[in-house]
Amino acid sequence: MRPETEADLAQALATATRPVRIHGGGTRGVDGTGDRLETGALSGITLYEPGSLTLVAKAGTPLAEIEAALDKEGQRLPFEPMDHRGLMGTSGEPTIGGVVAANVSGPRRVSVGACRDFMLGVRFVDGAGTIIKNGGRVMKNVTGYDLVKLLSGSWGTLGVLTEVSLKVLPKPDCAASVVIDGLDHADAVAAMAKALGSPFEVSGAAHLPVGPDGTPVTLLRLEGFSGSVAYRTKSVAALFDGLPVRTESDAGAVAEKWAWVRDVVPFHDADGDVWKISCTPSEAAELAARVTAEDLIFDWGGGLIWARVIAGTDIRAQLGAFEGHATLVRGTGQPKFQPEPPALAALSAGLRKKFDPKGILNLGLMG
């Protein structure tokens, strides 16, 4: 199925008697049972007001089209969405609906928030074929269900997005990185916490045990006006006096290195399963030590750990109980999402029953 309009989509879901698997750009390697429902025809920017920092686009709009339009006005998506194609070995074009449906957020999440934090409104069709609109074009409190945030990260299990409204932000004048070489996991997490807890507005904090030159490297990013970035870069570097600290200010090199972190480039051509571990940064070093990983990347100041492991490894069993969850991003043999505790699972099932009474949307993907 490839509906041309929102009304066509509503009709298709209202009359569907078999499960459907929602297909956007096809970049994350997610498949399932049922008939394929493509959203690519629901494409195009329907409203862009640079002065109001607001953009509205149909869900099938390629992410590249949105980023190009924003770039012309010196603006960007603040949450820095990842491109999964290299990691997953897929082709196609990422779409804004796919980004929202999975709440895709990159290194800047540690400073500005996730995709869902910049959502203003959504339009979607639920599993019964009902067209639903929630939110608008301005940030405001709402009563009842906040469907905007509920749909962000629901992976299409509650409805098929047709249009999203987003808040955007200006691009900074420049960016720089403070680089610390040779730290172990625990010292790197402590260094990132120190930088993020400083008043110097660090917009990215990542640690690669195997950096570009094969040795550990910890990266701290600063963005903004050139004079401010110069001052803050020097100030952050001074926090680590006595450690092997250096700074990078070449715009191209800084952007390339942070795209390297964002898109998990070290894992692209490497064998094995890939997991995302979401945790409290204070637990990151200990959790990493429990996992028999081939390679690791720490992002979000340690709040996100990417782990590449031998295919078939159940890292949930290795991690045991902790405050967080592990998601299988690339690989098979384990549930993609962390099994929920009984009470939460019952709540999730109730929500899915409400929005998808026939049980046809991305069946089995989230439990």
Rank of each mutant, 00 (worst) to 15 (best):
V178K: 01
M192F: 06
L147A: 06
V217D: 05
A317C: 05
R262P: 00
M366V: 13
Q338I: 02
A270D: 03
E283W: 08
A311E: 09
G333Y: 13
R116K: 14
A206S: 13
Y145H: 11
V112P: 01
W260H: 02
T292D: 15
G136D: 03
C174T: 15
I180N: 02
G227P: 04
G359A: 02
G25W: 01
A101E: 13
V56H: 08
A206I: 03
A343D: 08
D71L: 14
V164T: 09
T90R: 06
V254Q: 09
Q11Y: 09
A317R: 14
L363E: 15
P209Q: 02
S152F: 06
Y48T: 11
L63V: 03
E80M: 07
R316Q: 03
G320S: 11
L42Q: 14
Q75P: 08
T332A: 13
G113Y: 03
E323Y: 11
V148L: 09
G367L: 01
R116Y: 03
M139L: 14
G26K: 10
D126Y: 01
A186C: 01
P62G: 08
V56M: 11
F79Q: 03
A14N: 13
V164L: 10
G242A: 02
D146E: 12
A285F: 04
T46S: 15
R116H: 08
H84M: 14
C115H: 10
R109T: 08
P266G: 09
L328H: 12
E6K: 12
L287C: 13
V164G: 08
P212D: 02
P266M: 07
L147W: 14
I360P: 03
W260A: 01
A307E: 13
G25Y: 00
P3G: 05
I132C: 10
L53M: 14
M366A: 09
D35T: 15
G32H: 12
R308S: 02
F267C: 02
K257V: 06
G331V: 04
T95W: 00
V164C: 10
V112N: 07
P50Y: 03
G242W: 05
T33Q: 12
A311G: 01
G367S: 06
W300T: 00
L151P: 01
T218E: 07
A14I: 11
A57C: 05
V148Y: 05
G26I: 04
A186F: 02
L220R: 05
E340A: 12
A16K: 11
Q334C: 10
